[in-house]
Design a protein around this nucleic acid. Structure first.
Lengths: 109, 109
DNA sequence: ATTATATATTGCAATATTACGATGAAGCTA
DNA sequence: TAGCTTCATCGTAATATTGCAATATATAAT
């Protein structure tokens, strides 16, 4: 089989899992960390900074873009990728809500 | 190739990605949410609550256990799985630090 | 128009993940 | 002991992910 049974879970559960999946690769963590620290940036920077090939970086950027974390505009021949701060904040809140919701009294030993 | 080049990233980046990978499946989100709300729980509960087979639940629990998020003890024939609140807090802080670290001035449009 | 540079897409190979039936191991109950 | 319950592990099939070479596309500069 190998297919995730997404239909048996809630939308919120699927969305959080989807977001986590984007963060579930060190290259994408590194890319997001780098981008979030720049005034602007282009893909070619990332190839040098991260150390993966240009097609691979492009694919990772695409994954990040899929969950709306990037906003990009062409400036001349260079593509300027930036974090969408609104979406970033949304995800921050989602993860925070998930981690905040825990019963600390669960069978302590 | 298909192998993640973990060696070109920092330990922190790999660890955060590894933690995110555990959250990158709706079943594991659901399991964690369920367990964190219970005083204690057994795998058989989860099979009914989540709706996946017992071996699949067992595998998911194992993934969650790998990053130290579960502490479990046998109580009679039943296994009592619980969240490790210390580890939970650690991960909460890691994700929080990641999301807090953003330069909001990045080329806004 | 031609060339150079930057990014996207395609195709493919290697590996990882997801899921479950079958089976095994461990403990309880009678 | 025999049967039952609970959970882990094995084996296997389907699908997803990761990575890159090759190639395509798009803009800039000459």
């Amino acid at each position: 089989m190998g297919v995730s049974k997404t239909h048996i879970f809630t939308t919120a559960q699927n969305e959080l899992a989807q977001a986590a999946k984007v963060l579930a690769h060190p290259a994408r963590i590194a890319i997001l960390q780098y981008i979030s620290q720049q005034e602007n940036c282009i893909c070619n920077d990332l190839v040098d900074v991260i150390g993966l090939s240009q097609p691979t970086i492009s694919q990772h950027l695409n994954e990040i873009k899929k969950i709306g974390l990037l906003q990009g505009t062409y400036e001349g021949k260079n593509l300027c990728y930036c974090i969408d701060p609104k979406r970033w904040k949304e995800l921050h809140l989602s993860f925070d809500a998930f981690f905040s919701n825990i019963n600390q009294n669960c069978c302590q030993i």
